[in-house]
Design a protein around this nucleic acid. Structure first.
Length: 879
RNA sequence: GCUCAGGUGGUGGAAUGGCAGACACGCUGGAUUCAGGUUCCAGUGCCCAUAAAGCGUAAGGGUUCAAGUCCCUUCCUGAGCACCA
């Protein structure tokens, strides 16, 4: 802490205004003091303390302001941060803004105001609201993803990906959302009963071929699955990521086509059933469909393909209607293992986007093929033995069993048969082992204004070839050029050198995207069309004459990066936010590593968390980062529902505004109530009545410590009245339990325990100053303003967090006598106070002698007697 | 359809296989207060006049001296995936 700020703090006369608990009198003052003192500034790596890095998923600063769900997660992380700091850790608890994105741009389209202006205003409001809640945030490290000093490094990371061959341009059909005027990643498209919709806004989306930047996340598919094992994450989230990546192991098998030069390759996870393949199906979009189809079937196939294309998405994804459709192409394929001539069909249950877009159908052992075969009367051949009584003519057998009707595999179990046949196919050149993923490469460009520009120039192939060996432009040049067709000309991507970063956004007259999928940036021709010096990478306006021989005509990339780009690595920037030479210094990265704890909503289980892991692993692989995984421990807070138990929404009118609650009950009460509602991970309804419970607790804590008529320490503390044994034991139990519960994020039970302690304190004849001070320090992470205020009124000059976590004395927990439960046949009939170390015999004797026990045992033969020392006795009688 | 997580008083929720309902809200009664969205005291799972007894953690079955907790079946709710070969 700077000396001057500390002095000012000490000199501030302590306000000892008399009166009842009035949060409005001091919450604001403490917030200002923490800020002025830099009370929660993380210390440098050289401080010698162990580090603890607590991270919240940073918010998108929307115009609506803070939602009640934000403070839920932020309070949880704040309690942990304050607790760890009191325990002596050097804590990093930062906050920033994920501020690129669609809402700001839509606002800009509607009003003409630059998105940066609205973004700044929203950030100011969010910061005000977060400060109002008293979070122990190191505000010196705050930044926004829209800051040029930040996205300079986002662009740098992209260039590294480009350099290492992990970025390319594709013109395959992609999801395009006409309402949003942009393409979307697979992950951003939801399957709804109404068909595929945009995750944001629920607008219809459609497939269109548009030129796109794509990141090769599939190259990391295996690493992203394997890395999950070591992570302390919710199982559900791990499972979600695993399913999303969707790894399947199997084989590719090539079928020759009867009377054709072409062959059809399929992917199957069940090569063992190859002898049972009785027909094939190709997707209606399959490139070979036109050549396969016989003249006789041409019109039928064409009309089917057209029908599928025109089928509404609703119809095509409607699984309630299990009926399968399809048409025979007239072609026949040859089963490579038995030479059988099998028909080739086309049907929309086969997807062009998975595997090879073609399948071998084994109706006896696949439910979908079975349905299709039954529908169209196709033949079936059982090759895996099913249990007694199972009839493959009634249902497909998908389980294990000995192979049958399969020469060379007879009797083998499924797994062995798979291995054997795959090896055979491979030897015969008819197939090979193969792995398939559901994961697609990550569509990384958007036709929007408000995002990071790609630091890339497009030049002609001829000019690309002229880039000299010592050119600055080679800094990020990939080994294989990234090319695409631009206005009918083959163009090559040239990455800007690092010295030219950040590439900033140009001013534009309109933010309106074009319905054809052109970015608003494409209209900024001054910015887009430049001359580039092929040696230095300098650029100059193309409206001027060509500056010299070394200069080539170039066009800037006009797409921008998706919102995920900025959130992929922000947690690394907090470590060293002002660094101008890299994303962070080596020393800082070594000390802080990656977050020790990460909390945020489960809605990011696949998108953000998968993308960030991909980037982190990549940066680790190229030696930038010391650790392979970004988030060792992850937690999802549950939703706060409206009082009606429904999701909060404006239309339902059940939204709870944090500003209102703070005004009425104070920040401490809001924080504490959010934590008291129930388990952190559970979705739970808000209750405006329920908050009075924690309000009362805070008032009682105030009265326990503060003498209301004078405002100084309470008279109770000064009295000589002894503390009850019960209170002292409860105090130590509370120190232990709250510490444990904070580590495991069970804040609701931690607060219950503090309430129990309060009840004991009020029953105790006296409360010592030392005990009270311990109590206040335990409560401080939960209700920091009140506890800080009490701490000061007790005469302490330093902050309460600096006072540390109170020591816990196990000896104080030991009870000399325990209440032992006496049972007869497992039912409680009485209890007895017994010495803790009582022998089994003594316990049994006491139980037998208990009058209420005797009522149930007298005159009955004892069958069994169970004694659990220190706990219970159970006498089992007959009759 | 598949996968996962759940189902405990009027409500939110506690319970290393060992007294179900901690803690809190609400409610009932009482005290304090000019007043109260104040404070304090007592009570509050069901059945019952009361006590004792009995019943009780979605339903049914099982394991165990003992089950909210472990196992099986069924029902319901929520979340995710959705023709992934």
């Amino acid at each position: 802490m700077p000396a001057r700020a500390a002095a000012a703090y000490l000199q501030t006369p302590m306000d000892v205004t008399p009166g009842t608990y009035d949060f409005s009198a001091f919450e604001r003052r403490w917030q200002e003091r923490w800020q002025a003192e830099g009370a929660f500034r993380a210390e440098p790596a050289t401080c010698g303390k162990p580090k603890y890095y607590v991270l919240d998923m940073f918010p998108y600063p929307s115009g609506a302001g803070l939602h009640i769900g934000h403070p839920e997660g932020y309070t949880a992380s704040d309690i942990l941060a304050r607790y760890k700091k009191a325990k002596g850790f050097n804590v990093l608890h930062p906050m920033g803004w994920d501020a690129f994105g669609l809402p700001a741009e839509q606002h800009a389209i509607a009003t003409g105001e630059h998105p940066a202006v609205q973004t700044r205003r929203n950030i100011d409001n969010f910061r005000r609201q977060l400060r109002m809640l008293g979070f122990a945030i190191d505000w010196d490290r705050e930044f926004s993803t829209t800051d040029e000093a930040y996205f300079r490094w986002t662009q740098w990371i992209f260039l590294q990906l480009l350099k290492h061959g992990l970025a390319y341009v594709s013109e395959k059909p992609v999801w395009f959302c006409p309402a949003l005027g942009t393409v979307l990643a697979n992950e951003e498209v939801l399957n709804t009963p109404e068909g595929p919709r945009s995750e944001r806004g629920n607008h219809p989306v459609e497939r269109r071929p548009i030129r796109q930047w794509v990141l090769r996340i599939t190259a990391y598919a295996d690493k992203l699955i394997e890395g999950l094992d070591a992570l302390d994450w919710p199982d559900s989230t791990k499972r979600l990521q695993k399913n999303w990546i969707g790894k399947s192991e199997g084989a590719e098998v090539t079928f020759k086509l009867d009377g054709h030069a072409d062959a059809l390759t399929v992917f199957t996870t069940r090569p063992d059933t190859l002898h049972g393949a009785t027909y094939m199906v190709i997707a209606p979009e399959h490139p070979l469909i036109g050549r396969l189809t016989t003249a006789a079937q041409k019109s039928a196939v064409e009309s089917y393909v057209a029908a599928v294309r025109n089928k509404s998405d609703l119809e095509r994804t409607d699984l309630a209607d299990k009926k399968k459709t399809g048409v025979f192409t007239g072609a026949y394929a040859i089963n490579p293992v038995n030479g059988a001539r099998i028909p080739v069909w086309t049907a929309d249950y086969v997807l062009m986007s998975y595997g090879t877009g073609a399948i071998m159908a084994v109706p006896a052992h696949d439910g979908r093929d079975w349905e299709f075969a039954r529908q169209f009367g196709l033949s079936m051949r059982q090759v895996v033995g099913a249990p007694e009584g199972f009839d493959v003519t009634k249902e497909a057998w998908t389980g294990d069993g000995p192979l049958v009707n399969s020469p060379g595999l007879e009797g083998l179990p499924v797994e062995e048969a798979k291995r054997k046949i795959t090896a055979q196919l491979s030897v015969n050149g008819q197939g090979r082992a193969a792995v398939n993923y559901k994961l697609r490469d990550w569509l990384f460009s958007r036709q929007r204004y408000w995002g990071e520009p790609f630091p890339v120039l497009w030049v002609s192939r001829e000019d690309y070839a002229k880039i000299p060996a010592d050119s600055k432009l080679r800094e990020f040049l990939p080994a294989d050029p990234v090319t695409c067709m631009l206005e009918g000309k083959e163009s090559c991507a040239v990455p800007l050198p690092a010295t030219k970063l950040p590439l900033t956004l140009p001013e534009v007259s309109s933010y309106q995207p074009s319905p054809t999928g052109d970015s608003p940036l494409s209209k900024a021709t001054e910015w887009v069309d430049v001359w580039v010096d092929l040696v230095t990478g300098e650029t100059a306006s193309r409206s001027a004459a060509r500056p010299g021989d070394r200069w080539a005509a170039a066009s800037r990339e006009t797409n921008t990066m998706p919102q995920w780009a900025g959130s992929c690595w922000y947690y690394l920037r907090y470590i060293d936010p002002k660094n101008r030479d890299g994303i962070a210094s080596k020393e800082a990265l070594t000390y802080w590593g990656s977050p020790d704890f990460y909390i945020g909503g489960a809605e990011h289980a696949v998108l953000h968390l998968l993308y960030a892991r991909f980037w982190h692993r990549f940066l680790h692989d190229i030696g930038v980062l010391p650790e392979p995984e970004p988030f060792r421990r992850l937690f999802h807070q549950g939703l706060i529902l409206g009082e009606d138990g429904e999701k909060m929404s404006k239309s339902r009118g059940n939204v709870v505004n944090p500003d209102t609650i703070v005004k009425e009950h104070g920040a401490d009460a809001l924080r504490m109530y959010l934590m008291f509602l129930g388990p952190l991970e559970a979705s739970k309804p808000w209750s405006s009545e329920g908050i009075t419970g924690v309000s009362r607790f805070l008032k009682r804590l105030w009265r326990l410590a503060v003498d209301e008529p004078t405002g100084g320490p309470s008279a109770r503390l000064a009295s000589d009245a002894p503390e009850s044994e019960d209170f002292v034991r409860e105090l130590h139990r509370t120190i232990r339990k709250v510490g444990e519960d904070v580590e495991t994020l069970q804040f609701n039970t931690a607060i219950s325990q503090m309430m129990i302690l309060m009840n004991a304190a009020e029953k105790s004849p006296g409360v010592s100053r030392a005990s009270l001070e311990a109590f206040v320090r335990i409560a401080a992470p939960f209700a920091p303003h009140l506890c800080e205020e009490i701490w000061a009124r007790l005469g302490h000059a330093g902050g309460i967090t600096a006072a540390g976590w109170p020591p816990f004395d196990p000896a104080k927990l030991v009870e000399s006598t325990v209440e032992v439960v006496f049972q007869v046949n497992g039912k409680v009939r009485g209890t007895g106070k017994m010495a803790k170390e009582s022998s089994k015999e003594d316990l049994l004797a006491a139980c037998r002698a208990h009058p209420d026990v005797r009522k149930f045992t007298d005159g009955k033969p004892v069958v069994k007697e169970i004694v659990v020392p220190g706990k219970l006795v159970n006498i089992v009688v007959a009759g």
